[in-house]
């Protein structure tokens, strides 16, 4: 009985924590794509940048992981603004800009991957942070590390905050109006370019937050960039581009599918199962589950 409970609780916590991080990154990606039509192929590298910077601050400067994470997420704002001003905004009016943006962001991804590989990649092959909150809390028979509990709460808190912001705040609502219909939003007096910039900054910030949380919960290496980029795209497509709700629901579904299937089959099958699930959903509802 205890064994069953142990495994059951491990499934719930794993599903929640991986799902929440997936959801966060996918939400960042979907905000940018929904507003600007910018499929950011460099989002995995942004995610990685967030994690690596936290790692540097913590291991190099002895900063506490939480403080480092907060600083890095704050630093993502000027980072995104510079990128927007220097590069992203030039393509706002290109008709098939999604493709142009895919090229540009692939170029960016290559640049960041190159930088990481010639710096961090030569220093070590694994990046591990000390526990942000050492110790373990017992949930019945299941020992749950407090750091992961912390990461989970922050991730869920951020998702909830994002949600409230998009529903209730003036800017958030303008953002959603742009998601739904650019022209109509412009006619109603929404500053579409301003919203584009805002969406890019917000999306980047959320992706960075995902990266820093991931770094707190797991050891990681440079291969995580591409895996995360692809998972985030997959969640966005299934959830429906531009839908933060879709990202959250599908992110959690992906996290739980992987965790549950892991119980019955080997982890490769588990990974495979959500890829197949994604294809099936796409065939049934090509525009994504949560599009209006």
């Amino acid at each position: 009985m205890d064994a069953l409970l142990l495994i059951g609780l491990s499934v719930v916590t794993t599903g929640l924590i991986t799902g929440a991080i997936f959801a966060l990154v996918a939400a960042g990606v979907t905000i940018v794509y929904g507003a600007i039509w910018l499929p950011n192929a460099a989002n995995g590298q942004f995610f990685m940048l967030g994690g690596l910077l936290v790692w540097s601050l913590v291991t190099g400067w002895g900063m506490s992981p939480l403080l480092a994470a907060a600083l890095v997420v704050a630093a993502s704002v000027p980072f995104a603004l510079v990128l927007e001003k220097g590069l992203i905004r030039y393509f706002y009016d290109v008709p098939d800009r999604n493709i142009v943006y895919l090229v540009v962001t692939l170029g960016l991804a290559q640049i960041f991957a190159g930088i990481f590989s010639s710096t961090y990649g030569r220093w070590t092959d694994n990046y591990s942070l000390p526990a942000a909150w050492p110790g373990i809390v017992m949930i019945g028979p299941f020992p749950f590390p407090k750091t992961r509990l912390l990461v989970l709460s922050i991730a869920l808190g951020l998702l909830a905050g994002l949600f409230v912001f998009l529903r209730l705040h003036r800017v958030g609502r303008a953002l959603r109006a742009v998601f739904q219909n650019r022209e109509a939003a412009a006619l109603r007096g929404v500053n579409v370019r301003g919203i584009y910039r805002f969406a890019f900054v917000l999306g980047t910030l959320v992706v960075f937050a995902g990266g820093t949380l991931f770094a707190m919960a797991y050891s990681f290496d440079l291969t995580a960039a591409w895996s995360m980029a692809i998972v985030a795209f997959a969640i966005m497509i299934v959830g429906g581009p531009g839908s933060v709700l879709g990202s959250v629901v599908i992110g959690l579904v992906f996290g739980f599918t992987q965790a549950i299937v892991s119980v019955f089959a080997n982890p490769t099958i588990a990974t495979f199962s959500y890829l197949v699930a994604m294809l099936v959903i796409l065939l049934v509802k090509p525009s994504g589950l949560f599009t209006r």
Partner: peptide, 23 residues
């Protein structure tokens, strides 16, 4: 899937198909 998916969604889903093939 391309028969049902509008252009760019197909592109993104093909990315996922690719990672499944690698696996």
């Amino acid at each position: 899937p391309a028969l049902r998916l509008r252009g760019f969604y197909f592109t993104l889903s093909s990315l996922v198909i690719q990672s499944a093939l690698t696996l």
